[in-house]
Every structure is written in structure tokens, then in C-alpha cells.
């Protein structure tokens, strides 16, 4: 996967609550934005639900590349569901993932924050590059790389700020270790960007309406 899932017990209680609070605030804003739409499109709820189910199902597939890679497709969720619904989708995916042991319950807040960054950056890049790069494949690929790169930075910042319980190393040493991890993650991010690019190009060909006028 292109980013890690932190497990329970990694952070102290203070930081568990801090990241949970931050995630709840962001998700709360997303809920507010969805509720306060002048013409609420109820279809969005159904589409977001199926986006969640599809993304979670795809996460369960092991790609026979680099000995087995699982994709989260968070930037793709951003592109397809938009940043508001996408934030809710990644929260649900993190809860479902925690339920089967992929990421801790206490770390859902931190993991969701990282994912929201990926969703938001992925969506924004894809939208901003609409006129510069009209071709869907490279645009989605670049948006994915950008989203996962920013997600990685968010992850490093969260771990540096929180510290890992029981680790008595200096910030420099932790940063060195995390940079190595981030480099591996970015390698997987290239695979995810390639796959996301192909998925978006395929969707653009078969069901362009799913991307909407604002993204096409």
C-alpha cells in the first residue's frame, strides 16, 4: 500500500484523542457541507456508499507486483466522490479496516487525516489540471502521485509530532527511518498512480458521466 496503517498502541492517549478530534472536525465539516447543499442530491449518498464498497473490495485484492501490494485508491475516491463525500468514505473504510485489524481503532483519527489529505489533494490536482492536461490518464496519475506524496508528508508529520510509544530515539533518527519508509511508499505510489490513471481513463471512456462536467 502506498501509505501505512498505524496500529493500536503506537501513540499515547493524548495524541490518539488529538488526531481523533482533528478528524472528527474535518468529517464534521464534510457532513455540514453535504447537508447544507441548496439542492441536496440524494444520489450522492448511494454513490458514496458504493464507492466505499468498491474501494474496500479492491483493497482486499493483492497485486502480484513487488511480492504483493494492496491499493487504497484514496485519490481515486477523491476524484470519483469529491472531497466532502470522499472524506466520509475514507472514514468508513478506516473503521471497516480497523474492524479486520488493518489499522488500529485508536488510530482511525490519524489514519483518516492522512487519507483525507490524499482525497483532497488528489481531487484538487485532478480538477486544477483539467485545462493543462486534458488527457485523463496522465492527469489522474499525477493527481494520485501528488495526493499520496502529501499523504506521506502528513503521515510523517503526525508520527514526528506524536512519537511512537516506547521509542527513545531523537527526532532526527525517527525522521531518517520514516524517510526510508516514505521512499518505499512512494515506490508503491507509482504503481497506484499507473493503476488509477488507467481506471480513470477507462471510466472516462465507458461512463464519462461518473466524472462529471467539472472534471472532464
Amino acid at each position: 500500500m502506498a501509505h501505512i496503517h498505524l496500529e493500536d498502541g503506537s501513540f499515547s492517549l493524548f495524541f490518539v484523542l488529538l488526531w481523533w478530534t482533528a478528524a472528527i472536525i474535518l468529517v464534521g465539516i464534510a457532513i455540514y457541507l453535504m447537508r447544507s447543499e441548496k439542492k441536496p442530491d440524494r444520489r450522492k449518498i448511494t454513490l458514496a456508499a458504493f464507492c466505499t464498497a468498491a474501494a474496500f473490495a479492491i483493497f482486499q485484492v493483492s497485486l502480484p507486483i513487488f511480492g504483493g501490494v494492496h491499493l487504497n485508491l484514496t485519490p481515486l475516491i477523491g476524484i470519483l466522490a469529491g472531497p466532502a463525500a470522499g472524506s466520509l468514505v475514507v472514514l468508513i473504510i478506516n473503521i471497516l479496516s480497523a474492524a479486520i485489524g488493518h489499522g488500529g481503532w485508536g488510530l482511525i483519527g490519524a489514519n483518516t487525516l492522512v487519507n483525507i489529505v490524499e482525497v483532497f489533494v488528489g481531487y484538487s490536482c485532478f480538477r486544477l489540471l483539467k485545462t493543462t492536461i486534458p488527457d485523463l490518464f496522465p492527469r489522474a496519475g499525477i493527481a494520485t502521485i501528488a495526493g499520496l506524496f502529501c499523504g506521506n508528508i502528513a503521515m510523517i508529520l503526525i508520527i514526528i509530532i506524536s512519537g511512537v510509544q516506547g521509542v527513545n530515539q531523537s527526532t532526527g533518527q525517527i525522521l531518517t527511518g520514516l524517510s526510508l519508509l516514505a521512499a518505499v511508499n512512494m515506490g508503491v505510489a507509482v504503481v497506484e498512480a499507473f493503476i488509477t490513471g488507467l481506471i480513470v481513463a477507462y471510466i472516462g471512456k465507458v461512463r464519462p458521466d461518473l466524472l462529471g462536467d467539472e472534471l472532464l
Binding site: 468498491a54 497485486l63 502480484p64 470519483l80 493503476i195 481506471i199
Partner: peptide, 25 residues
Amino acid sequence: VQGRIFAEVFALVFIRSFDRAERVH
């Protein structure tokens, strides 16, 4: 080639999911 096959399957999963979403809605 492998990436393309998987991407097409994943895209199909999304497309079929969205088709079903519309029918359920």
C-alpha cells in the same frame, strides 16, 4: 500488462458498483 489487467478489473468493479448504486437509488 499485469497493471493494465488489474486496472481494467478495478475500473469494472467501480463502474458496476456505480451502475448498481443507480439502480438501488
